[in-house]
Nucleic acid binder design. Sequence first.
DNA 1: AAGAATGTTACATG
DNA 2: ACATGTAACATTCT
Length: 285
Amino acid sequence: MPELPEVETIARGVRRAGVIGRRICRVDVRWPRTVAPQRPAEFAAAVTGRTLAGLRRRAKYLLWMLEDGSAVLAHLRMTGRISLVAAGAPVDGHVRLRMTLDDGREVRFTDTRKFGRWRHVPRWPDAVARLGPEPLARTFTPAILGAALRGRRRQLKPLLLDQRIVAGLGNIYVDEALWQARLHPRRRAATLRPADIAALHAAIRDVLRAGIRHGGTSLGGGRTNYAGADERRGRHQEHLRVFARTGKPCPRCGAGIRKIAVAQRGTHLCPRCQRAPRRSVSRES
DNA sequence: AAGAATGTTACATG
DNA sequence: ACATGTAACATTCT
């Protein structure tokens, strides 16, 4: 569910709700593995009584900065959602963690599939040091992307999903970016020419910015779907050009969008705009 | 009712 | 070291 634009939208929503400066007076871990490998008691002890000094986003992580310099890192994985509600509001069965604030509200983590992970770290920069560049940072240039791809024989799709190459892309925005750049997801990274790299760099930034502008992508209608901290759905699903549009016309050329499997992930593309590489392991589905 | 699902990681095999 | 595949996590939706 949440890729960079969704996590960014959540972070903005939580900040706007005015939680910075509030003290965390109680922590309730309702699904212990949410804080694994820490134990709920040690997590709660490290966080309880601390004041929220800030909230940042790094890739798909939400970083709750505490006033003592430590931080809580939250990764929402597939179905994690954040909401701010009145403390003591009815708790539904999928709430995995709660942080009660000193102003009568609580931060709630709801996660149907239980894949989400929260952990308390003494120094957050260490915890995110292995991640690749932030694609929307000024420091992310075509040259940086080119260097990350150079010499790699991996297929573009799994490479872009690798958070060490570029941090924050997921299945939806990778498909969208490859479509915009007219690149086939099975193309080997090392075969890109400078013009391809420039197009891919621009496409990555464009699709992420569009996602943020539209408040993220909310597919389907179920409880497992993405919503912002205020429970509102995103609107970017109305602007998707290939993802979840199998069989519909390509907005650029009209050809039918196709869905294939690349590196075990559902992958959407336009068979006319995104030419299959000559010697790809074409195993279509 | 089987299969897929917005994510990541560990482990195995080339 | 690199590339790829499988399983695991756990539940819901189509």
